Computed example of a mutant assay.
Amino acid sequence: MLELLTQWYRRRFSDPEAIALLVILVAGFCILFFLHGLLAPLLVAIVFAYLLEWPTVRLERIGCSRRLAATLVLVLFVGVVLVMAFVVAPVAWQQGIYLIRDMPGMFNKLADFAATLPRRYPALTDAGIIDAMAENLRARMSVLGDSVVKYSLASLVGLLTLAIYLVLVPLMVFFLLKDKEQMLNAVRRVLPRNRGLAGQVWVEMNQQITNYIRGKVLEMIVVGIATWIGFLIFGLNYSLLLAVLVGISVLIPYIGAFVVTIPVICVALFQFGAGPEFWSCFAVYLIIQGLDGNLLVPVLFSEAVNLHPLVIILSVVIFGGLWGFWGVFFAIPLATLIKAVVHAWPDDMALEEK
């Protein structure tokens, strides 16, 4: 057994570049694991810098300096974000308040419908079970209402932190865009000298992350707008709020689409009942989800993310448990990183065969 472990170690870790790559990966993991809370503004800035790098490079190609291009792109981006914040966010927030206010009515309607099930299907349902479930839901609704109030009070404390982020993040994005090469050179000076393998993995992952962030943002916008238009056609209540939730849900593959479908069904059932309008609205929603998964995602990501669905779900669960939102957001790039490292890792036996 010891001999097998020794042979495996020599085969996998005899190359100095492999050791350098391992050191870089372990150091990066430790930094993110222990300091991800403190580094949250920097992570946000890095995501935005990846997103804005493409228009910055295009402006450079038509003759703008790097500083001017970064300034123009950042000003335009901040303007778009402000428009969204002052136009979309207040409407979605107001609809969220109305939804919370109407939830007791939705629950009562659901309870009344559930109470009729034992009479309609006596062989399949029991009145006692239905009453127990209704009582349990009432208790949970009460707890949810208290939690919303506590969260609203706690969010007031976080407004100062949010204000600081609103100043820090744009500044970080500007310097990441303007001084990109200087910062990369500074990082290279800190890394080990034998980093050829790490450089090979970095080149592949840099392109993967760039494509992933741009694709995800575009997917969120397209799916959100298409869902909002579809809900508006049917006059569905809270259409903007639900569309925003559907757009955000694309960040979590498979799981997000399943979770966000629940409030969509509940709102549509409460408004339309189980009639033709409900089924038509739900069919349009399913068509949008189907087009997203079978048309939009292949077009945006192509072969950039060639991972099995089970691997993606496990990545979301594992990295989300480790790093929360950022683990969920970067679950697919991190899984792709592991795959790239496994494929690029040197194997002495493979080299001897060649």
Rank of each mutant, 00 (worst) to 15 (best):
F13Q: 03
F13R: 05
S14Y: 12
S14W: 09
D15L: 06
P16K: 05
P16L: 05
P16W: 06
E17W: 02
A18Y: 04
I19F: 04
A20N: 09
A20T: 02
L21D: 01
L21G: 08
L22P: 03
L22D: 00
V23T: 08
I24G: 09
V26N: 07
A27E: 02
F29M: 01
F29T: 01
C30W: 01
C30L: 03
F33K: 14
F33H: 13
F34S: 13
F34N: 09
L35K: 09
A40R: 09
P41Q: 07
P41F: 05
L42A: 12
A45I: 00
A45F: 02
I46F: 06
V47H: 12
Y50K: 08
E53R: 14
T56Y: 07
V57H: 09
V57C: 06
E60G: 15
G63E: 09
C64I: 00
C64S: 07
R67P: 00
R67S: 12
R67G: 12
A70H: 04
T71M: 03
T71F: 07
T71W: 04
T71G: 03
L72G: 03
L76C: 14
L76P: 03
V80F: 12
V81Y: 11
V81I: 12
L82V: 06
L82C: 11
V83P: 11
M84Q: 10
A89E: 11
P90N: 14
P90W: 10
V91K: 15
A92I: 03
